[in-house]
Amino acid sequence: MALNLFDGTYSGRRVLVTGHTGFKGSWLVMWLRALGAHVAGLALDPDTDPSHWRLLGLNDVADHRVDLRDANGLAGVFDAHHPEIVFHLAAQPLVRRSYRAPTATFDTNVMGLVNLFQAVRHCDSVRVLVNATTDKVYADHANPDGYRENDPLGGHDPYSTSKACAELVSDCYRKSFFAAEGAGEFPVRVATARAGNVIGGGDWAEDRLVPDLVRAAAANSALMIRNPAAIRPWQHVLEPLSGYLRLGQLLWSDAGFEGPWNFGPDVTDEISVGALVAQLGTHWPALRTEPDRAWHPHEAKVLRLNCDKARQQLAWRPVWNLGRALDKTATWYRAYYEAGRIESERDLATYVEEARRIHLEWAA
C-alpha cells in the first residue's frame, strides 16, 4: 500500500519512532512505511504476547532495542540513522504501574526524554521532533469546555506528573537549545501532542479498559470494572496519529507550529467507562463485566480536551466517531481471535479513504 498524503512530506524521509514496539508506535510505523518513509525504531521489547508489532512483521524497519535511560545507546541510534524527523512515543505509559514503580516512571519519562534531547542536540540531521505526551498533563480542575493547551499543568499520580514534567522539559529545550537564534542554520522544531484515550486493534497492554475486556472475553470470563462513571475522551488510535503526522508535516515547513497541541474526539464521543463498555458489547456480545468495589488509586472523574486549536490551525479533526471506532476495534479483535487475521492495513486504508471523502487537507 503506497499512500500519497501529508503533501508527500514523509516520502523518502528518514524518520525515527521511539516506542515503536508499543501499541500506538506500531500503528505509526506501519503508516509511515505506507507513506514511503525510511523508518528506524527505538524501544524496549514488546511487553505483551500477542504483540501488534510482531504481528505486523515489518522486517524492513531498523529495529533497535534501547532503553531511554541509556544515553550512549540513544546516541548510537542517532549516529547510525541520522533521522530528519523524530516521533517520541516511548514511555512508561500506565498510571497504576507508576504507583508501583515511581522511580522508574520518572527515570524513563523525564530523564529518558532529557537523554533523547541531548542525542538530538548532537545530531545535525534532525529538523522536527514531535513528543507525544498525554491528556493527563493538566492540573485537575473542572472545565466544562475541556482543557486547553494554555491551561495549568499538573498531576496527581506519578505518571501524570512525569508527563507534565516532560512538557516542561520539551519547552525548555525548545527555547534553550533549538530556537532559531541559538541553533545555527537549521534549528529543530519541537512540538508536544496531548492525545485522549486511544482504542483500536492490537492493544494488549495491562490495565487498559479495552485490552482487559478483550482478554476476559477470550478467556470466557467477566472483567471487574472500576470507576464506571469516569468520563474519558475516547478515540481510535489512527485519530491522534493523523494529528501527529499532520503536525510533523507543518513543522517541516514552518516554525509557527511549535508548542503544545491537543488531539481528541468531538464532545459527543467523551463518554463514561460504563457507556463505552455497553456500546462495545453491542459489537461483541462475548464481552462481560462485573462491578469492582475494591479500593483503587486516584483517577480524575472527567477528562475532556478542547481541540479547537488543532481544528483551526492544523485543519485537523476526527474522521471516525466513537461508534465507528468501536465497530472497527471489535471487528479487529474478532478477526484475530476467530480467524487469525490482522486487519490493521485494511483499517488504515479505510480510514484514509474516509478522510478523503470528508476533504481533510492532510488526505488531499
Rank of each mutant, 00 (worst) to 15 (best):
G202V: 06
L209F: 06
R215V: 09
T161D: 05
E239L: 09
G243R: 08
G243N: 08
L241N: 02
G248V: 08
S221G: 15
A229T: 12
S160W: 04
R226F: 11
A229C: 05
E181Y: 10
Y173G: 01
F177E: 03
E167K: 08
F186A: 13
A193H: 03
R148W: 03
N227L: 09
L213Y: 00
E185M: 14
E167S: 06
G248M: 07
E206P: 03
K175Q: 15
D212S: 15
P228E: 07
A164M: 06
S160K: 10
L153Q: 03
A193S: 10
D140Y: 11
K175P: 01
F177Q: 03
Y159D: 05
P228K: 10
H156K: 14
K163G: 02
E149D: 10
A217Q: 06
L247S: 06
C165V: 13
D207H: 15
G248K: 05
R246P: 01
F186C: 13
H156M: 15
R208I: 07
G202Y: 00
A219H: 13
F177P: 00
A183L: 12
Q249M: 12
F186W: 14
P240K: 04
A142H: 12
P144Y: 06
E206K: 15
A229N: 12
Y159G: 00
G146N: 03
G248N: 07
E149Q: 11
V137W: 00
I231C: 04
L250F: 07
A216L: 06
Y159S: 02
A216R: 08
L168P: 04
K163I: 05
D212A: 14
S221P: 05
P228N: 07
E167A: 08
T161S: 12
A230T: 04
S242Y: 10
V190K: 00
K175T: 15
V169P: 00
G146Q: 02
Y173I: 09
A205G: 14
F177M: 05
D157K: 09
D157Q: 13
L153S: 03
H236I: 12
N220L: 15
V237N: 02
A193K: 01
A218Y: 07
